[in-house]
Design a binder for these strands. Structure first.
Lengths: 203, 203, 203, 203
DNA sequence: GATGAATGAGCGTTCATTCAT
DNA sequence: AATGAATGAACGCTCATTCAT
């Protein structure tokens, strides 16, 4: 009868929403029973949808990732210069930080399945590869190392809730700007401060 | 009589060591009983030293912090240029990553007490303030925002286990170099790639 | 559907039976875990039925009392002379001694709730009052004092396991006979042995 | 130096006193630690004097028994008629009930060692044997069965705290009188009430 | 398919008892 | 010989997970 029920029953949605809300409020301590109650279903029902706590968390994480994946796909990263694309990525990521926050408080690494991780990373890998091809990046670090550094910066900033100190836009801009300037090829190799030169030799 | 008993009995040390080892291997799932067994003491004794699981984790975190604090204090950060000081900080932090790793897998934010956090941050705060005073930093971001970004980069990189991909020294160097170049004042404001200019306007 | 499930699930019964058996064998030292195992249920389940050790013991005691109450109710005490009624009470009580035994070894006074105690005593109170009304008892002791003495004799005898020395029937008969002769009104006040007369004056 | 310290150190005495006091107040729940504290000694010291809880309780019981044994020995039971001797025994036993009370609440049968029990029972056994020899007792119950019944009545009455209902003297008198009349030989076998006759046939 | 009960594991605690010192 | 710490066992409890019905 109910025709246009999205594939995953509203029940699943209700559960995920409830779980997200509860986790956001009370952190990792929420019990399965509480989630079930908050979703208006019995404990056992919860277990038919998500066979264990981890799977619930994982699904929640996938949910968030899916959203990110969608936004990244819609961002038209391929059509703009690398720098601008990176700026968009930062804005999107920081913009989602609030939702992320709840999950991150619960479990640092909620074990997103590989496939999801791959989908999430794919556009970034492509973007950084393009940067490499276009000679945007400095030569001493590979594009994959740079991607790692960028991800580290991003996740670290989200973990530190940088956006709640600076505001979303400024935080995204700071991240983008710092990374870009730090990772950019030095076009004009003029005289540089001696301190850094010695460090550069460390490479 | 008992002369060289370190204040906190070897028992406490044994427990902390065992706990660190077990946690490193099996993550947050280790039970108190397992920790006790691994430390060669009875469960009750464990509870005498650490009244609950959280306090054990917290102490473990403090331990790690204390080591870091000590190394930072010994690093002579005040006597060298900011860039070199930062390089040392990165090396120290990345060097400790292995030990951190275990804890970080268990609990992202093991609730280090404020005082410990303050002691840990103090030399960095001073360092970044000095950077500010010496005009090392770019002008569009405060030294505290830059410190946040640096910490984010560092913690993100540790969380990503960058050191196990690149090796400890290269990872530290990459972090230092990326951050320094990204945060440094632009001495020679020549023409820059258009993409970035548009971004710069976002500030 | 489930028709003949006694109100208190067979589980409760199984637990009580197991507990009674274990207690009878090993006395107060049986642990809750052992009771649970003996009953074929998990420790947690045991705690669902009896929230603590005391409540289990208490229920066991009530159980025994309920049986006694039932037998006393069925004994038709009101329809026979006081002496015969008392004989029946003694037989019933001694007959149950085996079951009592286990409990008594565990806990002398397992704190039977007042209501149960009242139900247990009610027919005896009535019986002794009747004895008073019918002039069966000696005049120097109230019917309530006599009841106390009878209960004392009965419980003392059970505690001493008199029935396992003399056999159930003889033990019951001895109790009944001693008490009745001791408590009966002296119909023929002829000359009595001097020793007792001096004692009687003590009253 | 300290010459006339009774064999068992005052420490032991202090412990026993403290234990008795605590047990009287709070029942079986007193912990060894509490006893030790109350006695002003360390837990471990307590354990040197009484290697375990049971041995402490046992000693306490022996103590009480020793007192009783002494009083019975001093009562001159041999020199007076059986009835009077029995009256003295009852008075002595009931008189000690208060002290007994504490122990009896703790542990119904504190496992008095056989030797002590024998010493305690010896004068009573003798007394009842004398009763037998003198033809004081009814013929249908052996003197040992009668002794059991008397002990049962006595202990039951103490357990019921009869003395706190009737007062010490009246309680002792009631016990003595009931038992004596109940156990005495029937000197004048005249016609008796029909109710009892039927019962007598049960023998 | 949904509900109540069952289960095992772990937690944090108390206590009798034992070991070092 | 006395003290503090250590130990194991059991208690009472919560929670994720599983089974009947």
């Amino acid at each position: 009868m109910r025709r246009n029920v999205p594939l995953r029953d509203r029940v699943a949605v209700a559960i995920l929403d409830a779980a997200a809300a509860e986790l956001a409020q009370r952190g990792q301590s929420v019990s399965m029973a509480e989630v079930a109650t908050a979703a208006g279903v019995g404990r056992t029902t919860l277990y038919r949808y998500f066979p264990n706590r981890e799977s619930l968390l994982e699904t929640l994480a996938e949910e968030a990732c899916a959203e990110l994946i969608g936004k990244l796909a819609d961002a038209g990263l391929d059509g703009v210069p690398v720098a601008e694309a990176l700026a968009r990525v930062s804005r999107i990521a920081v913009g989602q930080a609030a939702k992320y926050q709840a999950l991150m408080r619960v479990c640092c690494k909620p074990d997103v399945p590989d496939e999801t991780a791959r989908q999430l990373m794919a556009p970034l890998v492509a973007l950084f590869a393009r940067g490499s091809a276009e000679g945007v990046w400095r030569g001493d670090l590979g594009s994959d190392a740079l991607l790692d550094l960028y991800m580290a910066l991003l996740e670290g900033a989200l973990g530190h809730a940088l956006h709640s100190k600076l505001g979303v836009e400024p935080a995204a801009a700071a991240i983008t700007s710092l990374f870009l300037q730090g990772a950019r090829a030095q076009h004009r190799p003029g005289p540089r401060p001696e301190a850094t030169s010695s460090l550069a030799e460390g490479f």
